[in-house]
Design a protein around this nucleic acid. Structure first.
Lengths: 197, 197, 197, 197
DNA sequence: GATGAATGAGAATTCATTCAT
DNA sequence: TATGAATGAATTCTCATTCAT
């Protein structure tokens, strides 16, 4: 079944190229023609690979979520202390800032449109975020889910800040503060626990 | 003598009522007819008060920004320790969670649409955010802008998390952690400074 | 009934001021609001004096026709030879060029819109044009209706030419040629007639 | 392979079929839906071939001007005397009376709407009229531009008269008079020249 | 598979007209 | 009388989708 492989491969390629387009104009604002033009194909071809605009969008969201963890995982190697890891995480975020902002736009757009009719979207999200929390715990070597959520929250917050005011925020600096806080927090918790008994 | 209507006042009323509508469907997805229906007026009347959908939206964003600070300022009274204040802040956020999430949707939508052509939008944002930072500093009684940004970031992050997964996040808990971290961080900084000389 | 006089007088004033507005934008293109603004009144007032846009327009056309002949008649005094009269006529046309062009626009507009539903418009025109032909005959001192029509035709043609290309046509020159032609034509006709018997 | 349609050719066909529609209702009065219905296509198709109502109209005007001279040129063959030619011209006008009246409506409409913002329209007109004058000179075998303008003016005038009062004017008769006048005028001019030296 | 012409419901916007004040 | 706010049908234009080639 060589044809099917081609088809599937090409579908993925198209999906990849859609990313920027959806991110920059938003789901409701971009037209299928604009997408087709952006991909260098005809609308007919677009419909050959995706049954509708909505389906195309949903497949894109799925694809993004699938790739998100792979990318983070690839970035985890060879770090030792917590501060080191946090800062590595910050550098990664900073390096791919544009990508993550776009991803954020797409995801928010998706939430807004799916919240109402169906919330199967949320199912996808829950899994993804669950995996992210797990990854953060493993990555940073602790088990406190609240703390992992704290870090995730901070990352999301930084992305939003970037959306608000592109140039005003230093991700590196923010991650330095985050690292120091976490270190202090964990040390203190540890001391606290030791003192307790 | 004309029908007696305070044009400016009525415009504001309409604007207020638009808030939910834009937040729930998004700028591009909601139609002027839906808005008119939602406001209980005809499309003609809508256009009598706002020259275009775009203008209506921009005026809404302006109005939101204008009101944002007033609301925060009203919430600052009668708290003592840092931890107390932070947690009061958290309660405030939690109480108005829906409002802030909607505001976030609207603002992100606005960024996405305005980023490209003009960025006069960003000017509005910068001022608003600058004032927020200032307010955080005053509220918490310190001068460290990086730290204020850290808190703001965290708040934004919480809102995004709420958007991702409505029920999974406990704002109160997150703010408890934030408060403890800040306290530790500031104490430590203080010690550090004392040690230095 | 002093009020009625005022009313009637004011209606005429408004009508006069409408002339330019209708001429410049055309019946279908101008809006009642634009007219009201142009007249310095509210739309409500406009509708107080005229039952509808169509009625306003028809009253304007009537008023124009009523005034047209008065103006020509006033211009007929103190000329002797045919050539002289023709040229005086040309000067008159040239002096009021803008006015006549506007009148032409309005009339054509009227024809186009009335041709289809009703042609009561044409009745008005027929009377007016009939009177014009009569006036030309009297003015130039002959009885040949075909020739009078020839002259009228030429005047209309000049107005159209002016519409096509504002600056390229010299009305004065054209009337000089017209005068000479008519003189020759009439002389020749006369000779011809004399020879015949 | 796409549906096989000669885009350019079809565009011209649509344009041709628009002629009557615009002429009969006027630019501002006819709606795109009426045009689409008149052409037997959907509004979507209309917009597939023309970006806007204005553009459609402008392309129509261009097309008309392009075709106008071709038609006159085709009519010039096999005439001898001036009187003959003039009368042939008159017959041609009479035969295509409806067409020319419609063209006149369209052109006037165009002037009225374009006069104000841009006058690129006038550029098109100037060229067209210039060519017409040239054609008249060649057709009638003389060089006097003023006289050519005189004839053009008369033709335009006849069209306007027809617009005013459809049935009252005999184009043939008017052209007979015109021919005689021109002949006399030219003979006289000739004599005059001979006498001079 | 690929194309882009065709569709028509639906979007933003306009405008003659009405009517409370 | 005069005003201009309110209306909603009608207008221009868009766009997801279909389909003949």
């Amino acid at each position: 079944m060589p044809k099917i492989v081609d088809h599937e491969l090409y579908r993925r390629e198209l999906l990849d190229k859609c990313f920027d387009l959806f991110a920059e104009k938003g789901y409701a604002s971009i037209t299928m023609r604009q997408i087709a033009d952006g991909l260098g194909v005809s609308t007919g071809t677009l419909y050959h690979y995706f049954p509708s605009k909505k389906a195309l969008y949903e497949q894109l969201v799925e694809e993004i979520n699938r790739q998100a963890l792979l990318k983070v995982a690839a970035e985890l190697e060879g770090t030792q202390t917590l501060q080191e890891r946090i800062e590595a995480c910050g550098r990664f975020l900073q390096k791919n800032e544009d990508y993550f902002i776009k991803q954020t736009f797409i995801m928010i757009d998706f939430c807004q449109s799916s919240d109402h009719h169906e919330n199967k979207g949320n199912a996808v999200f829950k899994v993804t975020i669950e995996r992210c929390l797990q990854a953060v715990c493993e990555l940073l070597g602790f088990e406190d889910r609240g703390l992992a959520a704290f870090i995730m929250t901070h990352i999301d917050g930084l992305l939003l800040q970037k959306i608000w005011m592109k140039e005003e925020i230093s991700i590196a600096e923010q991650f330095k503060i985050l690292g120091r806080m976490l270190t202090l927090y964990l040390e203190n918790k540890y001391l606290h626990h030791e003192e307790k008994p």
